[in-house]
Amino acid sequence: MPISSDHRQYWQTNLRYLAILLTVWFLVSFGCGILFVDALNHYRIGGAKLGFWFAQQGSIYVFVLLIFIYVYLMNRLDTKHGVNE
């Protein structure tokens, strides 16, 4: 069964959302928590160095925020393509 162009566009958009959100999560968790930790440790948040905070707390907060963003984007995409619940 051939795949329609609407179906293909839906999945391409979905994969684009995933790629962008996973890139943001990678940059926050790996970048801020490991790669840029020395530069970020010059600043403090809540008494802790910012690089340490990102490694321990910040990446988790960003991950949860990205889940909510993904749900919002997918609900909007589902509505656009008529596959919403």
Rank of each mutant, 00 (worst) to 15 (best):
G31E: 02
N14T: 10
H7G: 00
S4M: 01
I20Y: 08
Y10N: 06
G58A: 06
R16L: 14
F36Q: 05
G51T: 01
I34G: 00
F68C: 05
I45K: 03
I69V: 15
I69W: 09
H7D: 04
L65Q: 04
N41E: 03
Y70Q: 15
I34V: 15
V64K: 12
R44F: 06
I45V: 14
Q56V: 09
L50I: 08
G33E: 05
S29L: 13
Q56T: 09
K49R: 10
Q57M: 13
N41M: 06
D38Y: 05
A48D: 10
F63Q: 03
G51M: 08
G51A: 05
S5E: 14
F26Q: 07
Q9C: 11
Q56F: 11
Y70N: 14
G31A: 13
M1S: 13
I20T: 09
Q12M: 11
Q57A: 13
L35G: 02
Y61L: 14
W25G: 03
W25M: 01
L22Q: 14
L66H: 08
L22D: 07
F26N: 06
L35M: 01
C32S: 00
F52C: 00
W11I: 12
D6E: 15
V24G: 13
F52L: 08
L35F: 10
W25N: 03
A19G: 15
W25R: 11
G58S: 02
W11G: 06
L22F: 11
L21I: 15
P2S: 11
V64C: 08
D6K: 14
C32K: 00
T23C: 05
F63C: 01
A48N: 05
L50H: 09
Y10G: 01
F54C: 01
R8C: 04
I45A: 05
S4T: 09
K49P: 01
Y17E: 04
D6C: 02
S29T: 07
V28E: 07
A39V: 01
S59C: 12
H42W: 09
G58Y: 02
Y43W: 15
W25L: 11
F26W: 14
L21T: 15
Y17M: 09
V37E: 11
Q9A: 15
D6T: 12
F68D: 03
K49N: 07
G31D: 02
V62M: 06
F63S: 00
L40F: 12
L50W: 05
G46S: 04
Q57Y: 10
